[in-house]
């Protein structure tokens, strides 16, 4: 499946991916409103770790055998067999965060329910990739299996 891959050697640590992820997951879809005026404030699904010298935007790997799905105690976390996208059903999720406790990549954020990358659900290119100023994020199918 197509996944988002981060290139550490090109990441600027600008964190615009986070800004645009929040925008894509906001009610208004407007970068200014989403990041400044909207309540509840939208949460970024992608996080840039590292420092100015070496950094990378980490988001869900949409694993082949996702630990978060196996560990989900409510069946809210599922991997779509057709698209491969691992996503949370916000109605079913009780916010226990067992998924967070087992995700080896650190890609789940705490909220009222678990918050994670949904690859912008069917968009041709996720917002983080589309808006990366240095093409440090690429959306492609490398074929490699995930843990």
């Amino acid at each position: 499946m197509k996944r988002v891959y981060a290139k550490e050697e090109l990441c600027l640590n600008c964190r615009l991916c986070e800004v645009y992820c929040k925008t894509a997951h906001s009610a208004s879809k407007d970068v200014l409103k989403a990041n400044k005026y909207e309540t509840p404030a939208p949460v970024s699904r992608v996080t840039v770790y590292g420092d100015k010298l070496r950094s990378a935007a980490v988001n869900c790997r949409h694993c082949e055998n996702p630990k978060c799905v196996q560990a989900c105690i409510t069946g809210a976390m599922t991997k779509d067999p057709a698209t491969g996208i691992v996503a949370v059903d916000e109605h079913k999720c009780i916010g226990c965060m067992t998924c967070l406790a087992v995700c080896p990549y650190g890609c789940i954020t705490t909220g009222r329910f678990a918050i994670k990358c949904d690859l912008c659900r069917g968009e041709t290119e996720p917002a983080c990739v589309k808006n990366c100023p240095n093409r440090a994020l690429v959306y492609t199918d490398l074929g490699g299996a995930q843990e």
Partner: peptide
Amino acid sequence: ASQNAGIYTN
């Protein structure tokens, strides 16, 4: 303080 706890689990 559970941010990214899965990495510890790993």
